[in-house]
């Protein structure tokens, strides 16, 4: 019986899909059986980031409406023999095509076959969010170091805390630009973590290679030399329960170091 983790943020464009794709890939690289579920119905793009777009035949709505079995709709990622699958979102329907209860059942079914079910959540707090969260056991909240993004993350954490089946959410801070943080033009990591008061799962630098990799349909995590790749791999290991210290970008700030210890050292 696997675990279902929803990746959410409130605000759009902060890196939910990128995080889902990379964490899923990283977990598969670590030998886990992973199923990615794109719940952004009508605006799917997890398939594009994964480079699986051309192989889609059925989608999530087809499964929910009984036009095919889950197995048939799953797209296999051939790069990881039998480790990584994607359940794509429908492009033609909208979010109301699926109800939370149906999502819950679907995720429950997937958890039988996979170690991790990663659910890519759409932006917003409406139906799409409710669907994505319905079957989740855990949540990862993604934010960037901007005030509006942190504000939305706070709102989402409040909503997640009301979902009793979801364990307390953990935080990923994405697209950090070291020089902007230093000059005070971006919120610093300490400040964000203190403000949101949830556990920090990891931080990822702003890196144009992430965008290039996504455009090529090859998640950055496949390139072992990039910093963002290492950050994603580290997050994957933390999900597996290892205590991995944050990488150097992160420890440039002195005070960060104590915080890292606080969050990971004790695990």
């Amino acid at each position: 019986m696997g675990e279902a983790i929803v990746i959410t943020s409130g605000k759009g464009g902060v890196g939910k899909t990128t995080t889902t794709a990379n964490l899923g890939t990283a977990l598969a690289l670590l030998g886990k059986r992973v199923c990615l579920v794109d719940t952004d119905i009508g605006l799917r793009n997890l398939d594009v980031v994964m480079g699986l777009e051309n192989r889609i035949i059925y989608d999530l709505v087809d499964v929910v409406e009984g036009r095919c079995t889950v197995q048939k709709a799953l797209v296999k990622d051939k790069r990881f023999d039998d480790k990584l699958y994607l359940l794509p979102a429908a492009q033609t329907s909208d979010k109301t095509a699926v109800a939370p209860e149906q999502m819950k059942q679907l995720v429950e079914e997937l958890k039988q076959d996979y170690d991790y079910v990663l659910i890519d959540c759409p932006a917003g707090i409406e139906q799409g969010f409710k669907n994505a969260v319905a079957g989740a056991d855990e949540a990862i909240v993604v934010t960037t170091p901007e005030v509006s993004s942190v504000r939305d993350a706070d709102r989402i954490i409040g909503l997640l805390e009301k979902e009793e089946h979801v364990k307390s959410p953990r935080l990923v801070i994405n697209r950090i630009r070291g020089h902007m943080v230093k000059s005070g033009d971006m919120l610093d990591i300490d400040e964000i973590v203190m403000h949101l008061s949830i556990d920090l799962l990891g931080i990822i630098a702003d890196d144009e290679n992430v965008i290039k990799a996504s455009n090529n349909g090859e998640p950055i995590v496949l390139d072992p030399t990039s910093k963002a790749s290492i950050a994603y791999r580290n997050i994957a290991r933390r999900i597996l329960g290892e205590s991995v210290p944050l990488q150097s970008l992160e420890s440039e700030q002195k005070s960060m170091f104590t915080r890292i210890k606080r969050f990971f050292g004790v695990r």
């Binding site: 504000r151 939305d152 706070d154 709102r155 954490i157 409040g158 909503l159 805390e161 403000h195 949101l196 008061s197």
Partner: peptide
């Protein structure tokens, strides 16, 4: 947290923060 409202009729002793 953001978007939440906590309403009590008497005095409130909040052990925690009120976020923006």
């Amino acid at each position: 947290r953001s978007g939440q409202v906590l309403h009590v009729h008497g005095d409130l002793l909040l052990i925690g923060d009120v976020n923006p």
